[in-house]
Computed example of a mutant assay.
Amino acid sequence: MKFLFAWFVLGGSRDLLKPYAYVEGAHGQKNMLCQLLGDDGGCGLNHHLWMLDDLLQDVVDVRNRVSDSCTWEGEVWRADISREAVKIYYQHDESDFEYFDFSTLEVVLSAWIPFLRSTPSVESKAEVLVV
């Protein structure tokens, strides 16, 4: 699965760019991991980066068996994370969920954070291949 990251123009002004993630070839189908990555809780990019840094540390702690699991909540999406699986679901309807491998979350998150720290530009794109 190939995850692609890009910036899009928000509201028609090239001064307002918002990051987004999507899966190549998904043909408009939502991918809950991409939805979760973009869920900044309405707090903006700087706060979102702070939250993502904390999440990545929690994920590393789970990988290194410092903790068994962790949870991450955005405004709309939530993830229950363990080494066995990552369950991502819509907080207002827990029957709407997807499972991902733990390694998929770690690889994608580790690429997403530096992308968000890059200089926003409609020409700036990144991709990460998860096998």
Rank of each mutant, 00 (worst) to 15 (best):
E75F: 13
F115W: 07
T119M: 12
G25R: 10
V76I: 13
D101T: 06
F100I: 13
Q35H: 07
S67V: 15
R14N: 08
V59S: 00
T104F: 03
S110W: 04
G44F: 10
R14M: 09
F8Q: 05
Q35F: 06
V59Q: 04
Q29R: 14
A26N: 03
R117K: 15
I81W: 06
R63T: 08
G74V: 15
P19A: 12
F5A: 09
S121R: 04
G12I: 14
D61T: 08
P19G: 02
N31R: 03
V107Y: 02
E75Q: 14
E84F: 11
W50V: 14
A85Y: 07
F97N: 00
V108C: 02
S103Y: 08
A111F: 04
R65W: 13
S67I: 15
L4G: 00
E98G: 00
L56F: 15
H92K: 03
Q91A: 15
E73F: 06
M1C: 03
H92T: 05
K18C: 06
E94G: 09
H48Y: 05
S69K: 14
D54K: 12
E24P: 01
S118A: 01
Q91I: 15
L116W: 10
V130P: 00
V130C: 00
G28S: 01
E84R: 13
E75T: 04
G41F: 05
W72A: 09
V23E: 06
P19S: 12
G11F: 04
Y20F: 12
P114D: 07
H48R: 03
R14F: 10
Y90N: 02
K18V: 14
L105F: 00
V128K: 02
K87H: 07
P19E: 12
Q35M: 11
G11P: 04
A111H: 11
R117L: 11
S121T: 13
T119Y: 05
V122G: 04
L116R: 03
G25E: 00
K30T: 10
H27I: 12
A21L: 10
G41S: 04
F97P: 05
G38V: 08
G41K: 02
Y89A: 14
G42W: 11
V130E: 03
T71D: 05
V23G: 01
E106N: 01
P114R: 06
V62G: 02
L4V: 15
L52C: 05
M51E: 13
L55S: 04
W7G: 08
C34N: 02
G44Q: 07
Q35I: 09
S67Y: 04
T104A: 09
E123Q: 09
S118K: 09
E127A: 14
R83G: 02
S95D: 15
M51Q: 07
C70S: 07
L129A: 12
G38H: 03
V66L: 00
A79R: 03
G42S: 11
H27D: 13
H27K: 13
Q35K: 11
L16N: 07
V59Y: 11
E98H: 10
V76L: 15
L16C: 10
Y22S: 01
R117G: 11
E84G: 07
G25M: 10
Q29M: 09
D96M: 14
D93R: 09
A85V: 08
H27T: 08
N46A: 10
E127R: 13
S13M: 11
G12V: 11
L33I: 14
S121A: 15
